[in-house]
Amino acid sequence: MAGQDPRALIDYAALDDTTLVALARAGRREAFRQVMQRCNRRLFRVARSVVHDDAEAEDVVQEAYVNAFEHLSEFRGEAALTTWLTRIVLNEANGRLRSRKPTVELDQIETLQREGGRVIAFPSRFGSEDPAADAARGQIRRLLEGAVDDLPEPFRLVFVMREIEECSVEETAACLGLKPETVKTRLHRARRMLRAALHDTLATTVTEAFPFLGARCDRMTHTVLARIAAQVRDEV
C-alpha cells in the first residue's frame, strides 16, 4: 500500500540472529526487541543463578542488554548470539557480586525467607483443579529450587545451562569459558550433590509429614467408628 512504512512488513520472528543484529545496528529497535524475546528466559536464569534474587536478576539482564546494544558492532558472529549475550550477563552479575557489602539487612533475610527464591518454573499439567496436588507440586518445586540454589556457583551455572536451559556441552563451555570436559565433570558433580541434598531434605520432609498423615488417619478412624456406632444404635 502506498505510504506504508516498509519496516512494518518485516517478519522479525522469522529472521536469524545475524540478520537481526545487522538490522539492530542499523537502528531497527524492533529487531533488538526480537533478540531480547528470544534470549530473555535463558539470560534471566543465568543471572538468577549468580545473584540469587529475582529483582536483581532482572536488573542484571536489562543492564546487560543496554551494554550489548551499545556494543553490537563488536559482535562478530564467531559465537552464537546467545553465547555472546550470556557472557555479558555473567560479567554484569559477577561484577555486582564483587561490589556487594558483606552484610545483609535483617529485613532482606526475612523477605527472602517469606518469599523464597525462584529458579525453575514447573508449570502444572493439570491446572489447579486439585488444591492438594497443587500444594504438593509447589512443595516439590520449592525443594528443587532450594537445592539448586544451594549448589556452589561453578556447578550451579553448569547445571542451569545444561539441565534447565538444555544447552549443549559445547555451548555451555563457550558461554562459561570452560573446556567441554570440565562442563561434563561439573554437571556430574552437580547431579551428585543434588541427589545427596534432596535425599536429606526429602527424608526430613517425609518424617515431618507423618504427624499430618497420622492426624488424617485418626480422623478417618473416628469417623468410621462413629458411623458404625450410629448403625448399631439404629439396630437396637
Rank of each mutant, 00 (worst) to 15 (best):
W84R: 00
T103Y: 13
F126V: 08
E163S: 09
D54H: 09
F32C: 06
R100D: 10
A80F: 05
F126K: 04
D130T: 02
G117M: 10
L143V: 00
R41F: 07
P131C: 05
A55N: 09
E70W: 04
D150P: 01
L143F: 07
E165I: 00
E166W: 01
P123S: 09
E74N: 10
T103R: 09
G146K: 04
K101H: 14
V50F: 04
F44A: 03
G127S: 09
Q108E: 15
P154H: 05
A68N: 07
V61R: 04
A136D: 14
Q34E: 15
P102A: 12
A57C: 10
V46W: 04
S128M: 08
D59M: 01
V66M: 13
E58H: 10
A93F: 04
P152Q: 06
R98W: 06
V51P: 12
N67L: 13
I164A: 13
G146D: 14
R137G: 10
T82L: 04
Q113I: 12
L90D: 05
V61A: 10
P152D: 07
R162T: 01
R38D: 14
E170S: 09
I88V: 05
T86D: 11
R114V: 08
R87Q: 13
E153M: 11
G127N: 07
P123K: 06
S49I: 00
I109V: 15
A80H: 08
E56P: 05
R162V: 02
M161S: 06
S99V: 01
D149N: 08
I164Y: 08
R125L: 15
D150W: 01
R98A: 15
E170K: 02
S73G: 07
Q108L: 13
R76Q: 10
L112W: 12
D150Y: 00
R96E: 11
L144T: 00
R98I: 03
S124P: 02
E58V: 00
V104R: 10
A135Y: 06
V119S: 13
S73E: 15
L43S: 06
I109L: 14
A121H: 13
L97D: 10
L144S: 04
M161N: 05
A174P: 04
E129P: 02
V60C: 13
G117T: 08
E63Q: 09
S99C: 11
P131K: 06
Y65F: 14
R156S: 11
R125K: 12
L143I: 02
V169N: 10
V61F: 08
G95V: 00
V46L: 15
A47G: 08
M161W: 01
E153F: 02
V160P: 13
T103G: 11
